[in-house]
Design a protein around this nucleic acid. Structure first.
Lengths: 214, 214
DNA sequence: GGAAACCTGTTCAGAATTTCACAAATCACC
DNA sequence: GGTGATTTGTGAAATTCTGAACAGGTTTCC
């Protein structure tokens, strides 16, 4: 899938993910065709915004008609690169790591966790959700053997950097860091930070801010 | 804590959360004073950006010196409204809900889950992490009794709207929705969507995009 | 006490993003 | 086949956000 433009805003990528979610709902409800106006309302964004976001990747709609829901889902997925499966390595099998391993939705959405790694000797060998926990030192071998591309860090914060180093050394292409710590990676490795608390902070701020104005 | 400006960018709020994380690391390392330049480097942002973000809320630094780490953490927390505890209600005790209930970090960061609700009769009465699961119908009573302010939705998508309705009817002030579904709420209720997959999608996109350019 | 080195808070320019507005295309109906 | 009602894709305008630059304080050191 060709990208028409050189640079694509981060916000656009985030919205595309939302569009998929809402479009999937439309599909479940049996809606075949949707206008940017209707999709916009469901996503709480401006309809031009939607058309412009899509325009970065191609022309997916039909003038005078709208977008065919199933086609648009496929087109967005192809645009985002999630029209195929991605093999993931999970490093750090604590509470959060286990929850992610058990979360069926991952493989359903095309992100298949194919390796679970930890450096705790008490955990190594344990089987979680049909997956054996392996020593982190085996990462290089496993990454090659299983074709792992995305590393998911769910270690405690103090071990996040080491986990990242293992992953990078093993030749992973991108890292999603759930640990509450900043990590350093070379420029060619894509890095995403995930922090629930951001959302809680934002909620707290806005609630208090609203109260203040009354 | 006064807010100096009328409108504060969403991006600023997100960055403030990052600053707290990095500043806490500095504090653990024993650093007492930090310049915007050094903080900026650790957060991968521009130093003017940091000074500007902080300027929305007040003057927290000392010219010629920098910012006192502990003071700045406190100031940012006060600015965000997380200088006190927030009582949360969790609705939907599935896999994800249980993981959140077990996650110690929540109360440590000031978001205390004081009620766990579900509408499945098999789950009602069960005790998770010392908390008894209560029928969702009891939300109004419990919200008042316990002073719950933030609702956390971790139901399956098809039940998210109903959970939201219960919470809103019960007088909650803000909602954080982990369910992969859009929900409608009145304007005075603050709503945050949390979706891990956004990060995975973004990673997939950027990895593929980088490959394409080689 | 003064000079030099620092570093914040703030202004302003320009970069980036969002919204508007409309030409171009499609469909339904007469 | 033509007309009117729709709806997309896209320049241009409006808005928002970011980064460079610098005036205004602070500290250090002589």
């Amino acid at each position: 899938m060709a990208v028409k433009s050189e640079h694509i805003p981060k916000a656009t990528i985030a919205r595309l993910a939302t569009y998929i979610q809402v479009l999937s709902e439309f599909k479940r409800e049996g809606t075949d065709v949707v206008s940017s106006e209707r999709l916009a309302e469901a996503c709480s964004v401006n309809s031009s915004q939607i058309r412009k976001d899509l325009a970065y990747f191609g022309e997916f709609g039909v003038r005078g008609v709208g977008y065919y829901v199933q086609d648009l889902i496929s087109s967005i997925k192809r645009s985002l690169g999630i029209d195929r499966a991605w093999n993931c390595a999970l490093v750090g099998v604590g509470n959060l790591g286990r929850a992610l391993l058990r979360h069926r939705e991952f493989s359903r959405k095309g992100f298949v966790i194919r390796g679970a790694f930890d450096c705790d000797p008490y955990k190594i060998g344990e089987v979680v959700e049909g997956m054996e926990i392996v020593c982190s030192r085996q990462l290089p071998a496993k990454v090659k053997e299983l074709g792992l591309e995305i590393g998911v860090i769910t270690t405690p914060p103090e071990r996040a950097q080491r986990a990242a180093n293992y992953l990078i050394g093993a030749g992973i292409k991108g890292i999603i860091n759930f640990a509450p710590a900043r990590i350093a990676v070379p420029k060619h490795i894509h890095l995403e930070y995930v922090d629930f608390f951001h959302y809680f902070y934002a909620a707290a701020f806005h609630i208090r801010f609203n109260e203040q104005r009354d």
